[in-house]
């Protein structure tokens, strides 16, 4: 590793520590809600979409704000999203192939 000049190209200013703490509060709150949903029997029928939406929100917030994707060069977002989309496609395909289109093993 070497000493080098930082090559920051952020056109927008990053959020400051105050925003980071607010985001953390939201992330924590969502986690509490997620666990609460797990314990509410009435929500069982819709638990899957609810939890997926909530965790996707957390995912997007960490990637967008803490990893600065929202403020950084677009090429970083595209590199990450390409991997993410390919992985998501594979996972969904596996679920469909093994749980919906094939008879379950005895």
């Amino acid at each position: 590793m070497s000493a080098q000049a930082p090559t920051h190209t952020n056109e927008h200013s990053h959020p400051g520590p105050n925003e980071y703490i607010k985001i953390a509060a939201v992330l924590g709150a969502i986690t509490v809600v997620e666990v609460a949903i797990y314990y509410i029997p009435a929500l069982r029928p819709v638990i899957m979409p609810l939890l997926i939406v909530l965790s996707a929100t957390k995912f997007a917030m960490v990637a967008g704000f803490y990893m600065h994707l929202k403020f950084d060069h677009r090429i970083f977002t595209s590199m990450f999203v390409v991997g993410l989309v390919a992985a998501a496609f594979m996972i969904v395909a596996f679920i469909v192939l093994f749980h919906f289109l094939r008879a379950p093993l005895a």
């Binding site: 990450f80 390919a86 992985a87 998501a88 996972i91 596996f94």
Partner: peptide, 17 residues
């Protein structure tokens, strides 16, 4: 990190199968 998405994607896919 894009590449690692595929690594964990494969592992999570296996778990879900």
């Amino acid at each position: 990190l894009g590449s690692d998405c595929m690594l964990f994607g494969s592992l999570i896919g296996t778990y879900l199968v």
